[in-house]
Computed example of a mutant assay.
Amino acid sequence: MHSLLSGFVLALALVATIDGALDLPSNERPRIPVYEGQCDPPFSPVEGSHCYFLSYNKMKSDWLSAQLVCSWLHPNGRLAEFETVEELVDATEFLFKDNQDGTYPWAAPGPWIGAIELGDSNEFVWASSNSPIEVPNWSPSRPNSPTFGDGVALDVTNFFEWIDLSNGTEIPILCEIPSNPPPVELTCSDGFFSLGDRCYAVFDNDADRLSWYNAKTLCTSLAVGGHLVEFQTADELGLVKDHLLESNYDCFFYWIGAEEIGNTNTYFWTSSGQVVVFYDWWSGQPDDGTSGDAIGLRCSDNWRWSDEPKYGTRRFICEAPPVDV
């Protein structure tokens, strides 16, 4: 018996066939690993980006009721349909290994899947689309049930090969739902570092000094969505200030992305056009009497703000959103 099981696992690892023997090397193709948030509960994630509900020996029903139960479990729930060789291999390998574990035994003969017979023709379709089954995995001598409108079950005693049964037979169920998309992996553009959910670049060398306008232009060119740093929330301001206080940057004045409206001492963030709603001025600031100033962070003043004319060359800090890997 052990040799039979070993032979089956080896066969699954090597081939997948359209007519029943499993012609795609499953160990040579990429398979999406299980990822966080892949499936809505109570469905279980399976490698290959699949989501299944297995009733084991805890629930049995006829084929039509099984479809109904799947739809109760999730709005997009249905009996499992294996529409590609890849999914058939993924599901069969998973079920076989899960069954070998033995923690949750199946009731014989095994679960319903979403294939149904057309009349008494021994021709089967996937119920959700009424489409022909391109990748069957019939047990030898199957299908052979004499009844009308049979359903298809997976035979737990024979490596989960397919058998046809009267659709009124009460057996376990195997439901599926579409998986949720994988989480997007984000990173910072070259030259930027991650802080919170944003990316920053601090230009603290003397050779980096630019006017406010030129610094603004450079930040835009360095990354998609790049701009001089803007503090949209007090939390972001605190996060960046903590970083600056804990780091060993040259202690000078650094441009940020706030520009004065006329000579009003009211500022707006230039990339968003939003008026600055909170300030972190150093004592006595703002104190420049010219029109259209910009704001900078003064290291010597605990990184608090002061206003200066935009033509002065200063160090600066860029900000950009993370990008897809």
Rank of each mutant, 00 (worst) to 15 (best):
H2Q: 12
E170C: 01
A215M: 05
I261C: 03
R209Q: 10
S26C: 04
E36P: 07
Y35W: 12
L154A: 01
Y104I: 00
E260N: 05
F231W: 07
S211A: 11
F252C: 01
N27W: 14
T313V: 04
A320R: 10
S71P: 00
N122Q: 07
P322N: 02
C70K: 02
F148P: 00
W281E: 02
L22Y: 06
E236N: 07
I116H: 08
V34D: 07
P136N: 08
Y200C: 06
E319H: 12
L79Q: 10
V323H: 05
W305H: 09
L118N: 02
R298L: 11
P181L: 04
G196P: 12
G191W: 10
F192S: 02
Y35Q: 06
Q100D: 02
V9I: 12
N302D: 13
A107V: 00
L118V: 03
F53C: 06
R29K: 15
Y35F: 15
Y52P: 01
E319C: 05
V34Q: 11
T290E: 12
A66H: 03
P172L: 03
A66S: 14
E170Y: 03
V277K: 02
G273N: 06
F253S: 01
P75G: 06
G48L: 10
D190W: 03
N214M: 08
V125A: 05
S141F: 10
K97Y: 10
F96P: 00
S189W: 01
V46H: 13
A127F: 09
D307W: 07
K60S: 04
T84L: 11
P41C: 05
T220G: 06
P146M: 03
L64Y: 04
L68D: 09
N57A: 12
Y279P: 01
A91V: 15
F43M: 09
N158R: 15
S306L: 15
L228Q: 14
R78S: 10
V323K: 10
A80D: 08
F124A: 05
P309G: 10
W303M: 05
L218T: 14
F316Y: 15
L22W: 07
G289C: 02
E87R: 13
G37Y: 05
P109S: 09
E246V: 03
S179D: 09
L210T: 01
F231V: 09
N130S: 12
D98G: 02
L165I: 06
E259R: 14
P136H: 08
T169K: 00
W138D: 04
S49R: 13
G114P: 07
R315G: 02
D293P: 00
L154Q: 08
G284N: 13
P136Y: 06
A13T: 13
G20D: 13
V277M: 02
L64T: 05
G151K: 12
E259V: 10
S139M: 14
D19I: 03
F8L: 09
T270E: 08
E161K: 14
L218N: 08
T187C: 06
S128Y: 00
G296F: 09
P25V: 15
N205F: 08
S221P: 00
G37K: 10
D120Q: 14
C318S: 02
C318E: 03
V9K: 15
P109M: 07
F203I: 01
A294H: 08
P321Y: 11
V125L: 07
E319Y: 08
T84Y: 09
G296S: 05
V135D: 03
G151F: 12
W303I: 02
V184L: 13
W282M: 13
D324S: 15
R304Q: 09
